[in-house]
C-alpha cells in the first residue's frame, strides 16, 4: 500500500466487453482509468453493468479487451498474483459459516502464504493493522455471521486491505450502511488513496458520490456515458440523460461527521 503516486499509471481497462453465459452483452467496451491516489466512483442506473465490470477486472467473469495495472496485463497473471494486485469487496458475502472475524481477515493473506505455513509476524502485523483501520479489532473472536451488516462490511474491507493490493475495488459497499457508517467508510477509502492506493467504488447515492469521490464514471447500458471530475459528471445534464431525473443542486439533507477538533 506504499506505492508512489507518480511512478505508476494505475488501473486501466481498454474496450472491456463482458457477455453473460448465453445472455446479452452487459458491458460493451468500457475504457476506465484510475490513478493511484484517487477514488473513482462507478455510477449508473441498475443494470448499467457496473458490478459486472468490477467482476471482470477482478477476473471473476470472462471478458474481452485488456485490463492492465501499471502496464501489466492482469489476464497474464496467475490467480495468486492477480489477487495480490487487485483486492475486491463484494456487495454481499456468501459466508454463513461461523468463521471468527480474525480468520476472515486473515484470508486476505492467502495469496502471500504457502500451504501449511503458519502466518508470519509480518502477516499478523498486516492483519492487525487492517482490522484496526476498519475498527473491527474488538470483534476478532466473534463468529462472522453474528455481526451486523455494517460490521460485516468493515470486516470484508479489512480482508481486502490485508491483501496489500494496490488496487481496491468495492461493489456498493455503502448500500447497507447507516449515514454514519457511510462517512466512516469513505474516510477509510480516502486514507487509502492518500497512501497511494487506487480505489474504484460502485455507488448509488449521487450525493455521496459528490461528497467523497474524486472522479466519476457514469455508465448506461454497458457503455460509458460520461467521465471526468465528479462535479462535471454528477451534473444536471448527464444525470437527466442517464437516470431521467432532475438534479436538485440546492435543498435536501446533508450530513458530515462531527468536527470535534479531530477533523475528518
Amino acid at each position: 500500500m506504499s506505492h508512489s503516486p507518480h511512478s505508476s499509471t494505475g488501473l486501466r481497462t481498454r474496450g472491456v466487453r463482458v457477455r453473460h453465459r448465453n445472455g446479452p452483452e452487459v458491458v460493451r467496451g468500457v475504457d476506465l482509468h484510475a490513478r493511484p491516489g484517487e477514488v473513482v466512483g462507478l455510477i449508473g442506473p441498475n443494470g448499467a453493468g457496473k458490478s459486472t465490470l468490477l467482476k471482470a477486472i477482478v477476473g471473476l467473469l470472462p471478458s474481452t479487451g485488456t485490463v492492465t495495472l501499471d502496464g501489466v496485463d492482469l489476464d497474464q497473471l496467475s490467480a495468486r498474483d492477480r489477487a495480490r494486485s487487485v483486492a475486491y469487496v463484494p456487495q454481499r458475502t456468501a459466508l454463513t459459516a461461523p468463521l471468527p472475524v480474525r480468520s476472515v481477515v486473515d484470508l486476505g493473506r492467502f495469496a502471500h502464504r504457502e500451504p501449511w505455513s503458519r502466518p508470519t509476524a509480518h502477516d499478523r502485523a498486516i492483519v492487525d493493522a487492517a482490522m484496526a483501520s476498519t475498527r473491527v479489532t474488538e470483534l476478532a473472536e466473534r463468529p462472522f455471521p453474528t455481526l451486523s451488516g455494517g460490521e460485516q462490511q468493515r470486516v470484508l474491507l479489512a480482508r481486502a486491505l490485508a491483501t496489500e493490493a494496490p488496487v481496491l475495488l468495492l461493489d456498493e459497499p455503502t448500500s447497507a450502511l447507516d449515514v454514519r457508517q457511510v462517512l466512516l467508510l469513505h474516510a477509510v477509502l480516502r486514507t487509502l488513496a492518500d497512501q497511494g492506493s487506487t480505489v474504484v467504488v460502485v455507488l448509488h447515492d449521487l450525493a455521496e458520490v459528490r461528497a467523497h469521490v474524486d472522479r466519476a464514471l457514469l455508465m448506461k447500458d454497458g457503455v460509458v456515458h460520461a467521465t471526468g471530475p465528479t462535479a462535471e459528471v454528477v451534473a444536471p445534464k448527464p444525470v437527466r440523460a442517464v437516470y431521467g431525473v432532475e438534479l436538485l443542486e440546492k435543498g435536501g439533507l446533508g450530513y458530515r461527521l462531527p468536527s470535534d477538533g479531530s477533523g475528518s
Partner: peptide, 15 residues
C-alpha cells in the same frame, strides 16, 4: 477456509 466465503470471493483472494 477461503471457499467458505463463496467461489467468487475465494477466487478474488487468489484461490
Amino acid at each position: 477456509d477461503a471457499l467458505l466465503t463463496g467461489e467468487d470471493e475465494a477466487r478474488s483472494i487468489g484461490v
